[in-house]
Amino acid sequence: MATEPILEEAPILEEAAGQCVNAHGGAIGMPQLCPEWIPNQVFWLLVTLVVMFLILSRIALPRIGAVLAERKGTITNDLAAAEELKQKAQAAEKAYNDALAMARTEASKIVAAAKADIQKDLDAATARADVEISAKTAESEKKIAEIRAGALEAVDAVAKDTAEALVAHLGGKVDPAAVSAAVSARLKG
């Protein structure tokens, strides 16, 4: 119904003005519903879509897909390499720790051995010193005993001599055996 008056007016307007545009270049009704322009829009839309589809499907999407896959691969590889390096580092650390522990054990063993040696030497020396000391003590005691015995004999002899001399001086007859026995008896008493 609305289209009828437009069609009637169209010849009156300028040539340029079509079915949907008035003489001032303004829109008549809704430009979206203008049948005159639809073939043009559809044609250029199809051309554009085909061009876009070809650009995307032939060039752009495979390229971006390849780049993304490559990046993913690179990241995976890098992560794997990093993991490997990490394991290597851990192994090295373990080896270092092992070596350290071994060295510690060795050192403590050496220290213990040295301590034992020193102890042994010390013990030996102490024992030797003890033996020497006891030997010396025994010798000294023997000497003291000898000296004592000597002194007692000397006392005995001196007493006998003195007793003989006393007896002789008092004018008695000296019987050495009797004197000696008497002195011995007295000394023991």
């Binding site: 340029a16 979206q32 322009w37």
Partner: peptide
């Protein structure tokens, strides 16, 4: 609605499907 008008790029001719 004027912003939705389809215009030929060159000249003022009618809008054919290939214009």
């Amino acid at each position: 609605m004027d912003q939705f008008i389809v215009k030929p790029l060159f000249g003022d001719g009618p809008v054919h499907w290939y214009t």
